[in-house]
């Protein structure tokens, strides 16, 4: 069972209180963008075995969207952080590096 600490209301929220929102830190490419960018925005997703960054919503709770970093293989949680950011905070990256040396995810490492 996955459990994240919601960065907004602070509770330990288990998976059943949450709604999964897919991959985190996507850049939206809308009307006027190139076909390649638009396609990547709509369809191209990471599906890693290991470190992954996702969006989750505390739907049965405070209602807020947040970000989380976890391992898809072991369900180990590296941390959760607020949605108002385009990249993971350093403290989260440091935790991942200490637990999964040499990890990569998109352009992060």
């Amino acid at each position: 069972m996955l459990t994240f600490q919601c960065p907004y209301c602070g509770v330990q929220a288990d998976e059943t209180e949450l709604h999964a929102g897919g991959e985190a830190h996507l850049t939206r490419h809308g009307p006027g963008s190139s076909d390649k960018d638009f396609e990547a925005y709509l369809f191209m997703r990471q599906n890693p075995k290991g470190v992954h960054f996702e969006r989750w919503r505390h739907v049965n709770g405070c209602g807020k969207w947040f970000h989380a970093a976890r391992c898809t293989m072991t369900l180990e949680v590296f941390g959760a952080y607020p949605a108002q950011t385009t990249e993971p905070p350093k403290r989260i990256l440091d935790v991942i590096t200490s637990k999964r040396p040499g990890w990569t995810w998109r352009e992060l490492s």
């Binding site: 509770v11 059943t16 049965n60």
Partner: peptide, 11 residues
């Protein structure tokens, strides 16, 4: 105050 779910509904 704890907002959560009770069985299948928000509470």
């Amino acid at each position: 105050l704890r907002r959560t779910r009770f069985a299948q509904v928000a509470a």
